[in-house]
Amino acid sequence: MKKHDQDFMKRQNRLTVFEIIKNQPPISRASIAKQTGMSATTISRIVGELTEQGYILESEQVSAGLGRKSTLLGLIDASVLSIGIELDRHKISVGVVDLQGKAVCSEVHGHFPDERFETTMMRIGKIVGDLLRKGGIDPARVVGIGVGLPGIVNNETGIVVFSVQMGWKNVRLAELLKDLTGFEVAVDNELKVKALAEHLKGSAIGSNRTALIGFGNGVGSSLIIDGEIYRGDMNSAGEIGHTTIDPNGMLCECGKAGCLQTYVNISSLLLEASKIRQVHTIEELFEAKKAGERWAVHLVDRALMYMSITVNNIVCMYNPDSVILSGELVDKFPDIYEEVKELCSTTLVWEPLRESYRFLRSELNEQGVLIGSGLLAQTRFFTLE
């Protein structure tokens, strides 16, 4: 047990030093020791290992005052790459992500909701191989794959426990994708990795308590507290889309009636619209609203009201310092952000809390899940190595 604890501490110390060098370059060994409380010997050992493995670049000695000099450290961005994948009902996004969270190259492919899980995994395996070849990327530089998808995911085992949108239950995603690609695979809920990406590289840099809410094919949320994802016991914290609004309401795909997402998500809005006339895309619905058709105005305004109520509930429950509005609906129709912000600031957020948080747009937009998944794979690699 003692040996296990020592190994765990060594991995955590290594990851801590790595993250500091990544996020605060250029930085000296002394500064790292001061921030972490680790001894100079421990810092030198970890930096030596990372340098030997080709991750760290040491700059020339620079003046540090009164003739003293120190060597500054930074990371070689291209020394480590990972594959980030977003799986959604209608699309598969795949990209190569570097140490700074930048997508070196990426592609978006269509996905059929009724496609078998094994078929989807085989397609992803081929997409990954083709992308590396087309990008001229050496697979030896890729430390792993990260996958973000909607639903409840066991992030430790890589098993998708339940995903309404994908139609999957208890599927061993990490295991199969590793067999197909040869890479280590980390899997997590899409909004959890997106919130992490926004916290590290997007609109919520510097936030201590970030709440991200996603509105698209489903509805969900995620909370980052002091840089860590809040997961709950089953990694299901944030599944606000399946909170009950009306027990006598519309049936949700999950099998319950009156879930929040049945009033807001894209498929439910199109289903409601089809009771008036045939509407094939969400763009058509918003065009009808723009044209002033009363039924379309009613549907969209009702959705905006429920979005604002969701923000209020999140703010009241978690008291975040930052709330990020994201998801396909917000990406496609940027005006939604301003309309929801107005509703929240005037009526629908509890008055004592209206000025307690920053209301933000997603800065990473449609690449947020891809980038967050890639960063997840990198973190897993440096923790386990």
Rank of each mutant, 00 (worst) to 15 (best):
I309T: 10
I314R: 00
L353W: 05
D301G: 02
M307V: 01
D321A: 05
T310S: 15
L353C: 02
P320S: 08
A303K: 04
E342V: 00
L325P: 04
L299W: 05
I309Y: 14
A291G: 03
V330N: 12
R302T: 08
E293R: 12
I314M: 13
D331E: 14
G327L: 06
Y337P: 09
M305C: 08
V349R: 08
A296M: 04
L353H: 02
Y357G: 13
T347A: 14
W295G: 02
R354D: 05
S345L: 13
L304G: 03
I336D: 01
E342S: 07
N313D: 08
V300P: 06
V323Q: 11
W295L: 04
Y318G: 01
K332Y: 12
Y357P: 07
S322G: 00
P352W: 10
H298M: 05
K332D: 12
K332G: 11
V300D: 06
A291K: 14
I309K: 10
N319D: 15
S326L: 11
R354T: 03
V330G: 05
P352Y: 05
K290G: 07
W350Y: 15
I314K: 04
N312Q: 12
G292R: 12
E338S: 15
C344G: 12
W295I: 08
M317A: 13
V297A: 14
D335L: 13
N312F: 10
L325H: 02
Y318M: 02
H298N: 06
V315D: 00
I309D: 02
L348V: 01
